[in-house]
């Protein structure tokens, strides 16, 4: 009897964990757009004030995780890898254009370009947050239901 309970619990926990990991890409997207949006804001403020070179600016924004690695790639002036962020092809192209424009122009043209990205990034960030919230909840529930179904069928 106890063995059945433990096995049922393990199956449900496993399925819920699968649901959690299935929603990971939505969380990665949410985090990416939140960090990109913050980077954009910080860069715009940098352009209006200290105008430090891009390497110094990126160095000061060091952190952990995939986005920090992406910033390190930019510091080395290499093409960034965006595969960990689960972006659509269109988003990836937009982001590549975004990163390629960093530092390429005087402050007026840089301000104009990156200001034009502010609202777009805010929209993307909001949409990614919403999607992450709804998908995370959905996948957890699906995991729970799948776990229960397995328990009924197997145990």
């Amino acid at each position: 009897m106890w063995l059945k309970f433990i096995l049922s619990g393990l199956i449900i926990a496993f399925c819920v964990a699968l649901g959690y990991f299935a929603a990971e890409k939505y969380r990665a997207r949410k985090k990416f757009f939140a960090e990109l949006s913050a980077l954009n804001e910080a860069y715009l403020s940098e352009l209006s004030y200290a105008k430090k070179p891009i390497d110094v600016f990126l160095e000061e924004r060091k952190g952990k995780g995939d986005f920090a690695k992406l910033l390190q790639t930019l510091q080395r002036h290499e093409a960034p890898s965006l595969k960990n962020f689960h972006l659509t092809k269109e988003e990836e192209a937009d982001c590549r254009e975004y990163f390629s424009m960093l530092g390429r122009g005087d402050s007026a043209s840089q301000r104009a370009f990156f200001s034009s990205k502010t609202s777009l990034l805010a929209e993307k960030k909001q949409a990614a947050e919403k999607e992450s919230r709804s998908r995370s909840a959905l996948y957890l529930k699906l995991g729970l239901l799948a776990g229960l179904a397995f328990v009924i069928l197997i145990v």
């Binding site: 352009l47 105008k51 430090k52 891009i54 002036h77 530092g103 122009g105 005087d106």
Partner: peptide, 16 residues
Amino acid sequence: LLAACGFSLYSVENQI
């Protein structure tokens, strides 16, 4: 030129 500017033209526009 770009590398000498630290890939940051905006930071040296007055020099340019």
